[in-house]
Simulated scan of single mutants.
Amino acid sequence: MLAVFAKSFDAYDPLAGLVVDEVDEPSGPSDGWTRVEVRAASLNHHDLWSLRGVGLRAEALPMILGCDAAGVDEDGNEVVVHAVVSDPAWRGDETLDPRRSILSEVHPGTFAETVWVPRRNLVPKPAELSFAEAACLPTAWLTAYRMLFTRARLQPGATVLVQGAGGGVATALIVLARAAGARVWATSRSEDKRERARALGADAVFEPGARLPERVDVVAETVGAATWEHSLKALKPGGTLVISGATSGQDPAAGLNRIFFLQLSVIGSTMGTRDELERLVRLCVERDVRPVIESERPLEQARDAFAALAAGDVFGKLVLTR
């Protein structure tokens, strides 16, 4: 079958180890797993980190990449794949399982014609969502959903600042916060992305570090070092900063004095549970919310999609289709 996989690591040139080629179809690792024919799969920064050797062991190479997918299971059902694989004995929130992994770390990923996943990881895909739209949900959109509603407990009417509008998580944050009745502000270095964020539903847009009209209730942070100080200064006393990534670096100035003096809450968030994914899918249908897709490309053109993601010239999600 055709697949996109990592054959080697390169911290400075991640695409050097990327291969698009025919491979033997893997088999299910044990009882409780099922085969899914992949119709669409979306890219995440996790895939680039894997090619840099972060979160993926050398002895696991070659490894089929990809966390997210939508497709058809062995019984002919249209499904969305939840990417977090927990220990079979684990009960409760899968993201808290110390033995958890994500597809493409231990088990082959979704950038292939087929993927094997635990049956419990399948969520029914509603007819209202296309395969491409559904494939955008399990990582970036689920991360945004958990950040806003589970971790930050965003309330209707609150003001949320989204740092670094443009990527998959950031665009999801804007759309979901808007759908929940929040006032949404967003920042971006790019004037074009600021205007696209406004068109997406942001009530106001700003350059990074800009002085805001007033302080906000929640800051959704995925950028890290480049925006950390601004994120802290943007919060009202008692406000919440929820962070799920640090694409600009992982060593921000802590700002401890501001955190304790203003009684700020800094909350970490990662991925999401199967139940949260099911609720996210339902929200998309009932509120007529759809993921922002930059482009769809056939699986054969995966290298072009990876190059666009690495260059940062993306607004929304990149999707590979079959």
Results as ranks from 00 to 15, higher is better:
Trp185Ala: 04
Thr247His: 00
Ala144Glu: 05
Pro118Met: 08
Val80Ala: 04
Arg282Ser: 14
Asp251Gly: 04
Thr34Asp: 07
Leu318Ala: 08
Ala180Trp: 14
Pro126Arg: 02
Asp192Cys: 01
Phe206Gly: 01
Met271Glu: 13
Lys193Arg: 13
Val23Asn: 01
Arg183Glu: 14
Val216Trp: 03
Leu96Ile: 05
Glu300Thr: 15
Leu18Ile: 05
Leu56His: 11
Trp141Tyr: 13
Gly272Pro: 12
Ala234Lys: 05
His46Lys: 13
Gly316Gln: 07
Gly109Leu: 09
Arg287Tyr: 04
Ala58Glu: 12
Glu22Asp: 14
Ala16Glu: 13
Ser244Met: 02
Glu296Asn: 04
Ala199Leu: 14
Thr95Tyr: 07
Gly168Leu: 01
Asp73Gln: 04
Val319Ile: 11
Asp68Trp: 02
Gly167Trp: 07
Leu176Asn: 02
Val160Gly: 03
Gly249Thr: 05
Leu299Arg: 15
Thr143Glu: 06
Arg196Gln: 15
Pro298Ser: 11
Val292Ser: 02
Ser295Cys: 09
Trp49Cys: 04
Gly166Ala: 09
Arg279Asp: 15
Arg35Ala: 08
Asp21Ser: 13
Arg303Met: 08
Leu283Glu: 09
Ile267Pro: 00
Asp192Asn: 12
Pro62Phe: 01
Ala305Val: 07
Asp13Gln: 12
Gln301Pro: 00
Glu59Tyr: 06
Glu276Trp: 00
Trp49Arg: 12
Gly312Ser: 09
Pro252Asn: 04
